[in-house]
Amino acid sequence: MKLKRNTKEMRVCSVFGVSLLSFLFFTSCNTDETQTVATFDNLVLEDNFDIDGQINRDIWNFDIGDGAAQGIPGWGNNELQYYTDRPENATTENGYLLITAQQEDFNGAQYTSARLQTKNKFQQLYGRFEARIRLPYGQGYWPAFWLLGDDSDGSIWPRIGEIDIMENVGDEPTTIFGTVHGPGYSGAESISKSYTLQNTRVDTEFHIYGIEWGPNYINYYIDDVLYNQITPEDVPGEWVFNDRPFYIILNVAVGGNLPGPPNAETEFPQTMLVDYVRVYQR
């Protein structure tokens, strides 16, 4: 359902806002009532993936297939993988969730992988969503940690809203991006910002990817760096992030419009390791 994003420069005032917020962030040692960030400290969901070989089905559903059954073949982006719930594609081991993309002929696809989501099991409006993740690398990999709005009222994307907390294309091993999609700003028109790590990579180290999301704002951070804030002023359409709960998705796509297909140098299999997923409320 995620569609190709383009990077849009933030407005000057927003950049200033982020700088100010960062300043508050790094200088304050005690929780300050006036801060609008870092105030979500009530842990409401935590999965540390601590039981080997067992994904907690009280939290996670699997999306299966190539999207055709959902009416979006290639999951809306001409992706090449077939999602399964086999241990070859998703399991837990040594305290990590492993989502592994394999190169294999499977039900007409050349690749398999997995996509886990929490629809109807864990959904929440606002809060701090974060995960500690190590990503795969190489042309064609497209891992993501993202949220979709609940659609039980019959609304369809992009009206339901999409918050991409972290996406990466495997041929850019130092860069991630965070994006929102909504009515009038979806797909190629989505509102996005990338962040490039210095002296480290997404595939050699774990990094913490998160958002802090409240009324009329979504703050994006990686590790201890707040790198973007998106508010209703930044989107050229209706702000759809104040009116419904969202659920979590973790997946590794292969190919598709955004990363392009794997090439001869792309290594298979490779695994996205998730150390934990945590959600906080105020």
Binding site: F25, F26, T31, V37, A38, D41, N48, Y221, D224, D275
Partner: peptide
């Protein structure tokens, strides 16, 4: 380092 209740905790722990 599994308990990171907030970002300034991370900074604090790092320091």
């Amino acid at each position: 380092m599994k308990i990171n209740r907030s970002i300034h905790n991370i900074v604090f722990v790092f320091t």
